[in-house]
């Protein structure tokens, strides 16, 4: 049996380490469901709530069966009001609970921005550390499922810009399982962005995290350039890397995982070796997180970089309707063009 201790609960509640005992092949939806089940079992102060998360099990079934197992006091439906959900979470945190609220879709976080930004992100500060906010807000995020408007947004730069919040996004079932357990043990508020386009792909989930969950990870080692991505874009970059390999281009894929704080050390180590980088994200270009990543790389690798850091991103347009989303979300071809730009760059 592998023992994984994520951390003590911020509220001092007893945290037992029940967890996956042996490798299992799970979808991300199943991995998240398993993690929530174990969090509820091991932390008696943990609560799961939001719209349709109870009897229905959530619109993506991430909370399926949890109410039946843990009771309707600990897993409960709220009225359909996101500010209410997050304000409730803040008050429950003040009362010593570990809230794991869900906002049903990324775009539905906008009505809760007041409570997230003005309250949850600041209460630890305002109270001089006497009222921690150990809240993990799960947000099905990003595009790729041909959904209606406000169901395909990428909010990481908005949240990463807010002092007092931590932001993380898993790329696969193994990451999802371990990062959710890690986030739920954090004494600080974490925005947990689940790539909804990756909910149903299955992959092995190992019992041990395999690396330091607090930072980025190298998803694929390569020599010629680093693709930096997170969420659903990691799988796409891995696909691109396979295609590039056919042309003899050896691509490293760095899964950033934490979008705030960003792991500048792993970033510098990777690009320090490959000397070229392309950042890939679904969010619009301007003031996207790619700009922050590019600056961190430039600051740490300026002397050895062989080209400016490139960005392959969504456009500065509202997330388009389903028929056009393949034109908007970075696809294999656009990422390959980005790779070409950094490889063919010539100093002027």
């Amino acid at each position: 049996m592998t023992e994984t201790t994520y951390a003590q609960s911020a509220t001092g509640a007893e945290v037992h380490t029940t967890h996956i005992q042996e490798p299992r092949v799970l979808s991300m939806q199943q991995a998240l469901n398993t993690a929530l089940d174990e969090i509820l079992a091991s932390n008696t102060k943990a609560l799961v709530f939001g719209e349709d998360v109870g009897h229905l099990g959530g619109v993506f079934r991430v909370t399926d069966g949890l109410q039946a197992k843990h009771g309707s006091s600990r897993v409960f439906d709220t009225p359909l009001a996101e500010s209410g959900i997050l304000g409730l979470a803040a008050g429950l945190a003040m009362a010593g609970f570990t809230p794991l609220p869900e906002v049903q879709f990324d775009g539905f976080a906008y009505p809760a921005i007041n409570q997230i930004v003005c309250q949850i992100a600041r209460l630890n500060y305002r109270s001089r550390g006497t009222m921690p906010m150990p809240i993990t807000l799960r947000v099905p995020s990003f595009g790729g499922i041909r959904a209606p408007e406000h169901h395909g947004e990428s909010l990481e730069a908005l949240f990463a810009h807010v002092p007092g919040l931590k932001v993380v996004s898993p790329a696969d079932p193994h990451q999802a399982y371990h990062l959710l357990r890690y986030a739920a043990a954090s004494p600080d508020p974490v925005i947990f962005m689940e790539p909804k386009a990756r909910y149903w792909q299955k992959a092995p989930v190992e019992a041990a995290p395999g690396d330091d969950l607090a930072g980025a990870r190298i998803a694929r080692h390569g020599r010629h350039l680093t693709l930096v991505a997170w969420g659903a874009m990691v799988a796409r970059c891995l696909q691109v890397a396979e295609l590039a390999a056919e042309d003899g281009i050896d691509v490293e894929v760095l899964d950033l995982r934490w979008l705030s704080p960003i792991d500048g050390v792993t970033l510098a180590e990777s690009v320090g070796r490959t000397r070229r980088a392309v950042v890939v994200h679904e969010a619009p270009l301007t003031s996207g997180l790619g700009a922050e990543v590019a600056q961190l790389i430039t600051a740490s690798c300026f002397d050895t970089l062989r080209s400016p850091v490139e960005r392959v991103t969504g456009f500065d347009v509202p997330y388009p309707s389903g028929d056009l989303e393949d034109e908007y979300v970075p696809n294999v071809d656009r990422i390959l063009y980005g790779i070409q730009r950094v490889l063919e760059y010539k100093r002027g």
Binding site: S73, R74, G87, L88, A89, G91, L92, G96, Q119
Partner: peptide, 17 residues
Amino acid sequence: AGSVLHAVGWAHGQTLA
């Protein structure tokens, strides 16, 4: 009105605890 929901959350915490 920023703290009104916090009061509800804290109060519900009393019930749960």
